[in-house]
Amino acid sequence: MRAVITVIGKDTVGILAKVSAICAEYNANIIDVTQTVMQDLFAMIMLAQIDKMKTDFTAFSQEMEALGKEQNLSIRVMHEDLFQSMHKI
């Protein structure tokens, strides 16, 4: 299973490092990263393989949300299938 991690908020130093540190800690393999800056809003999207994670999905996503709160960002972890089904025929 692959998860899409989205980080949206004000651009600050070290966001990528912090998010990937959590991925590494839980053994979630980052497959792809893309980021854009729209005006002063930073949007980073990561695709991660989470089959071999050390924890369950809920704990991983809660950890990310907690980081988001701490950094004043919106961080969401969502199943890839949602985007595939909504935007592809």
Binding site: T6, T34, A43, S74, H87
Partner: peptide, 16 residues
């Protein structure tokens, strides 16, 4: 990879 705009659109739909 899935289109970035599609991802952001979905999140906007849910969040806002």
């Amino acid at each position: 990879m899935i289109n970035v705009n599609d991802i952001l659109e979905t999140i906007r739909m849910i969040q806002d």
